[in-house]
Design a protein around this nucleic acid. Structure first.
Length: 241
DNA sequence: AAGTTAGCCAACCGCCACCGC
DNA sequence: TGCGGTGGCGGTTGGCTAACT
């Protein structure tokens, strides 16, 4: 761990990092056959690989272990992943145990690249109008140039308000928001991404405001007010409880 | 043909739980 | 009982490559 590396450094060893070479793989396989796939620190030391035990374990589990399947996830596997994720959430190792030959890392990567993307697209295709003040609301602009808001319930973003529908809105209009699409759907911790986004959004909006373009429209969610402003990052947007 | 962007995936990092001393 | 070492896990990063402009 930090300490594994530190310990190695204290022994005067420099740890290798980065991609594994073929000869390292061969050596690791040999020593795992002899010593077993348990005491990784021991395997790392005895084998003479200048890798941490953790790194050895990871390489073995994700790449060298026998009976690993490499290649595309099948439709059946995808179905299983979807079902189990729905049931267990991001318990990648649990899900992986139900998919022989697949690693948690592989499933995690797959989820991030394919399934999530699909889910987002599906959301957008099926988006329905509605309003739910108990949820957090975010501004989007889709491909079809319809701006709308989405709610976040802790797991998903669900479209809810078409802001072009001014009759229905407690949202004031003032300036156009350009080219926003799927801004809040990324997978990093929510607050971090959101605050990054807010910063970018803020500068973009402000510059647009300075231009004072016609055909423009700011859209404020219901919790927005002079005292409680979006850019001041106050209150409900960051309060997920 | 060269530069840029997006997608993919291997590997790393940080946290936590467990275990033995 | 507390502490250090270790393994496991989920989140994140960075590099490679293919696709696009």
């Amino acid at each position: 761990m930090a300490n594994e590396t530190t310990a190695a450094a204290m022994r005067g060893e420099s740890m290798r990092k980065g991609p594994w070479h073929e000869d390292e793989d061969e050596r690791l396989i040999t020593f795992v056959k002899i010593l077993g796939s348990r005491r990784w620190d021991y395997v790392a030391r005895i084998s003479g690989l200048k890798r941490s035990g953790k790194s050895c374990r990871l390489r073995w589990v994700n790449y060298l272990r026998p009976n690993l399947k490499h290649g595309r996830i099948s439709a059946e596997e995808e179905t299983i992943i979807l079902k189990l994720h729905e049931k267990w959430g991001n318990k990648w190792s649990m899900i992986a145990r139900r998919l022989p030959g697949r690693t948690d890392n592989e499933i995690k990567n797959y989820w991030r690249t394919y399934i999530r993307k699909k889910a987002v697209i599906q959301d957008h295709e099926n988006f329905r109008f509605g309003e739910d003040n108990d949820k957090q609301i975010f501004l989007f602009q889709g491909d079809d140039s319809n701006s709308y808001f989405e709610t976040y319930n802790g797991d998903n973003y669900n479209p809810c308000v078409n802001i072009s529908d001014t009759k229905n809105s407690s949202y004031a209009s003032a300036a156009v928001v350009s080219d926003f699409d799927l801004i809040v759907t990324s997978t990093s911790p929510y607050e971090t991404r959101l605050s990054d986004w807010i910063s970018e959004f803020q500068s973009e909006i402000k510059s647009e405001e300075e231009l004072n373009t016609t055909n423009s429209c700011y859209c404020y969610p219901t919790w927005f007010s002079e005292e409680n402003d979006l850019w001041g990052c106050s209150d409900t947007l960051w309060n997920m409880e």
